[in-house]
Amino acid sequence: MSTKQNQKFEVATQLTKLGRDPAEQFGFVNAPLYKGSTVIYKTMDDLEHRRSRFTYGTAGTPTIANLEDAWTQLSGAAGTVLAPSGLGAVVLALLSTTKAGDHILMPDSVYRPTRNFCNGMLARYGVHTTYYDPMMGAKIEGLVQPETSTIFLEAPGSQTLEVQDVPAIVAVARKHGVKTIIDNTWATPVFFKAHEHGVDLSVEAGTKYLGGHSDILLGLVSANAESWPALRATYDSMAMLPGADDCVLALRGMRTLHLRLKEAERRGLEMAQWLQARPEVSRVLHPAFESCPGHENWKRDFKGASGLFSIILKPGYGQQDLAKMLDGMSIFGMGFSWGGYESLIIPFDCGQYRTVTSWKPEGLALRLQIGLEDVEDLKQDLEQGFARLGSA
């Protein structure tokens, strides 16, 4: 089905059609899995002129192309490239917009591995990073320098869930000829169309909601027409592509992405509201809550909320109390990911590494990923955990 034909449908229908063509697959519903390195050419002339849709395994396979094409259509982009992880996608995007001597702007709330890449490898290659308050909006113009090539956004922010004013920052970037990149993993293109809001490159950790089952590592970068050639050239020069099996699992995950996101939204909101009423909880950090920084931006620009949010406990609890709570959880696991079917909970303290904004919450902070377990069971697990917290 052509892009134009597919775009007339709602997103739930689109997701069932993207990245497959039964007419070219002997009638089978799903596309076959292609694995390989070598591509055979019919003639020497074809070989010398690289006359083939796929020239070598590092240039992609039909399986990889199916996922790239599907994501391009879903995100409304000019093209998509893949990476073996979400961080790999961030790296590809940044390398396609920067060169030695450039300056970039990075939100202080950014995913910590992205910060580490900027402070480490990018710095070694002569790219200077300035961190900015994610809530400064159009005031970011005061930080733009003649050498600024890129403004990076992450909405909502990692762990603390601030929702940036994307249109305002994009307007500043366009005024100064600066590229914009957004980490859109929390919302995915289902809940936030980054390119429709003027963002040049959109990064997604397909490890999370696209995969949906905690069994793959995958990154995706989509680009608008202006930024697509540089992104593709960067990708081709590195051959940093994922395995075909992971692409097949991602395509399978795409079919239920909308259903799982809507269910994650419903469950996440119910759990967040329940936690807000708990005596142990001081406040909830959730973009759909009016108290969350940038809530008005979320309400204006986003079509939904996923199942990841954070809470701040009331003062008085210590690390030993928290360990007693978390070590005894029956359903919630402790792990550094989200977007899968299982519920997760981790403590965090981003005050250790943020450099521009102050993170001094009134109590200990926890990030929760709400999975597909029964909500009442999840409440009971947390209730028992809070009892251990209080008894300690």
Rank of each mutant, 00 (worst) to 15 (best):
Q5L: 13
Q5H: 14
V11W: 03
Q14H: 04
L15D: 01
L18G: 05
R20T: 10
Q25G: 07
K35S: 13
V39Q: 13
K42S: 14
D46L: 04
S52M: 10
T55M: 11
G57W: 10
G57Y: 11
T61A: 07
P62H: 07
L67W: 00
E68L: 00
A70P: 01
W71D: 02
Q73F: 06
S75R: 02
A77V: 01
T80W: 02
V81K: 00
L82T: 01
S85M: 03
G86C: 09
G86V: 09
G86D: 10
G88T: 05
V91D: 05
L92Q: 15
A100F: 03
T114P: 06
R115P: 00
R115C: 07
C118F: 02
A123V: 04
Y125C: 09
T130C: 02
T130G: 01
Y132R: 02
G137Y: 08
G137T: 12
K139I: 04
E141G: 06
G142N: 14
L143F: 10
V144S: 03
T150C: 11
P156K: 05
P156V: 03
L161C: 14
V163P: 00
Q164I: 08
I169W: 07
H176V: 00
V178K: 00
I181Q: 04
I182Q: 03
I182S: 05
N184A: 14
T188H: 10
F192D: 03
K193H: 11
K193M: 06
A194W: 03
E196R: 11
V199Q: 01
V199T: 01
L201W: 04
G206W: 02
G206D: 03
Y209M: 13
G212L: 01
L220N: 03
S222R: 02
E226C: 07
E226R: 13
T234K: 06
M238R: 15
M238L: 15
G243T: 13
A244C: 14
A250V: 00
M254D: 02
L257F: 02
L259F: 13
L259W: 13
R260Q: 11
R260C: 08
E265M: 10
E265L: 05
G268M: 08
R278E: 14
R283P: 04
V284F: 07
V284P: 08
L285F: 13
P287S: 05
P293E: 07
A305T: 14
A305D: 06
L308P: 02
S310L: 06
K314M: 09
D321V: 07
L322A: 04
K324S: 13
D327A: 13
G328M: 05
S330H: 09
M334W: 05
W338N: 05
G339S: 08
E342P: 01
L344F: 10
I345A: 11
P347W: 01
F348W: 13
F348D: 07
D349E: 09
Q352D: 08
R354C: 10
R354E: 06
T357E: 14
T357M: 13
T357N: 10
A365D: 12
R367D: 03
R367Q: 13
L368D: 01
G371Y: 02
D377A: 15
D381A: 08
L382S: 01
E383A: 15
E383K: 12
G390R: 14
A392E: 09
